[in-house]
Design a protein around this nucleic acid. Structure first.
Lengths: 211, 211, 211, 211
DNA sequence: ATGTAACCGAGACGGTACGTCGGGTCTTATC
DNA sequence: GATAAGACCCGACGTACCGTCTCGGTTACAT
């Protein structure tokens, strides 16, 4: 979150305006909605935020970093996993929740763009991972733990294997929703979510069995 | 793959150099590998191809269209589905094949970028779909047909439902591979492919049953 | 004159617009009048000229070079030395002429500024010399030749000494007018010109004698 | 020389550091030598002086005022007119003295620059006049008084005419030296000084006669 | 053989955004 | 209340690409 390179702690000089950060991130999201990634310019963001361009560059290294932070805030606010009582219901819930996030124009246009840039920029990839991806993945871990508590899935004694399986499930869920939404450009509605969940739960049950 | 809007048919005047097309697409791929999407400039592509910028703009409307065509050629050449004898083997094959395509730097960096742009540009989305997505999807259809012929999957009498299922399977496969490769940034190796295939085949079998 | 680095002669590509040069120099003079040297910005000049900033930078290396050329044109147009019949009248004429040039706001504000910059930039000094200073100096040479032809001044057999004397007279005339106008900030009117000319002609006559 | 508007007298609070003034002016001169007028930045001056930018702006209104004061100090220290026994020797002395001042890089680069700015800023012109020009002019007045005392020049009964003549001589001397040094960019050496003095004294004698 | 229409390279054109820099102002904590 | 530090707003800088537009020249088909 927050700045790319937060000066570890300064003691002298005028402190950075906390409000500027907020205004910039808000302006970034607004500009993304209106203009999309390609037309987004930092000068315009600064103007919208009522802030000088210098202020913006003092806090973020560039467009990518700024947009990651701006979008990450949405993932913070809108991703949660209430216990819906069954593995199936939990998966459907998370699929629909993630899909609704991807239907927002600011995430649609920004997420793939920063992922594309991250293929050439390790620092950006780490930033995306910690700001966005890990937040999503924690839902998978939570969902699995609940399913195991309910007895819907077996406990996995080998931690390495457990991590691999969680990663796999995460890539399948997130990947399928992203691909459906952005590449196939079809809506993730209740029907699709039901079909996808049936397939996944079937696979999980068939593969790992019931305890 | 060539141009977006090939002039319907000319009869007189100097014909377009066929070699220029090839040189431009080659240069585009080379530049993508070296510079990535963000730093790719059409002027540079033209220089590399030994071609004037005008020539390039005469054939493609812009960066997006050019890159889609340049990358699509790779999908043409490298996607096929030899019959490996079983549904499981066919899926593993297609997963590994698609992953090896995504491991090329030119596809890594280009695919997500054009998808990101396509969220705001319907013409680009259609171009991507016809040039790239549909090529991949046809493999899914082929694989299912083979599995049905082998008796591994039931025939689906309702064509609408059949199409829905094919779309779902396609999004799951392609999405999982893309997400694993580009977002999670982990390799799609034999082990992962086996695990993923087991999950998917388990789901298919559990959901649609055996005939 | 003209461009700083005129490509010796190109044969291919679109030729440079001759009108752009003119429009830029006109706009530079207009902006100098309105804003003065300090507030003059190249972006504004480009806008006034209806020209892109790039076009301007393609032809001139910076503010200094541009302004030298813009001002030099005025020296071309407004410096001449009609034969007024006597050394005294010729000197008075050239003094008033030079003074009226320095009373234009564009020359007032620009000339000293570029001279100041030239103290740290040899290329700029050479440019100023060839574009402005040498034009003025030629008037001194012409005036002396006429005076010698009239018998008002002796012929100088030693060319080195003749050059030294011309330089001295030039520095005295130009320096006095510039200093009066810009440093003392007092007008060079007929009275001052008469007094100055009397002093100078007296000095010349006393020093070099009549033939 | 210090600030333009020295606060009339403060009684409370921390007193201004007297050393800061000196450090700032020294730093200004040093920066002028290294960077020239155009590249001189107030932030850099503050850093060199070990002083905050705020402190600098509390004492001077801007770059022009600061530089005028910094350079004026040099005119204070280095301009004087010892009695050399004759008008001719006094003039040669003042010419060489002024020239040696103009050969310092800090004066070369600064003087013309502030003069250029002063063409659009009356307050600056007055500041230059009182800080620099009047100091020089007083030498002319002193020299004339001595020459009159020696009987080399006649007394001028009309005070207005006397002032006009002093102004003229001043513009001729200062203008010629400045022009030779900065515009013609040739050195003012003993030979030039002799030639110039001969011309000027000849003119004075011829014009005003001996008493 | 000669038009002639469309191609080609080169490169200038009007633009837009970039990321940086300097100018002055302000807000802190410290002296 | 002056100071050092440094963030702030502002606006210009010079550069890089964009996509378009002349240029002078080159092909290759249709007379």
């Amino acid at each position: 979150m927050s700045s790319a390179a937060p000066p570890p702690a300064r003691r002298t000089g005028r402190p950075r305006s906390a409000e500027a950060d907020r205004a910039i991130l808000d302006a970034t999201r607004a500009a993304l909605v209106e203009l999309g990634w390609g037309k987004l310019t930092l000068g315009d963001v600064a103007t919208r935020a009522g802030v000088a361009k210098t202020t913006l560059y003092r806090r973020w290294a560039g467009k990518n970093e700024l947009v990651v932070d701006a979008v990450a805030a949405l993932f913070d606010e809108h991703l949660e996993l209430p216990d819906r009582g069954s593995l199936r219901a939990d998966i459907e819930g998370v699929v629909l929740q993630f899909a609704s996030l991807l239907e927002r124009p600011e995430t649609r246009t920004a997420l793939m763009a920063v992922v594309a840039e991250s293929t050439r920029d390790d620092a950006l990839r780490r930033r995306i991972r910690s700001a966005i991806v890990d937040r999503q993945k924690s839902l998978v871990l939570l969902g699995r733990a609940r399913a195991q508590a309910r007895g819907e899935l077996p406990h996995e004694p080998d931690p390495a294997s457990a991590a691999r399986n969680a990663d796999l499930i995460f890539d399948v869920i997130a990947g399928a929703v992203v691909h459906r939404t952005l590449v196939s450009a079809e809506p993730v509605d209740d029907e699709w979510a039901r079909g996808f969940t049936a397939l996944l739960v079937g696979g999980l049950t068939a593969t790992y069995g019931r305890p």
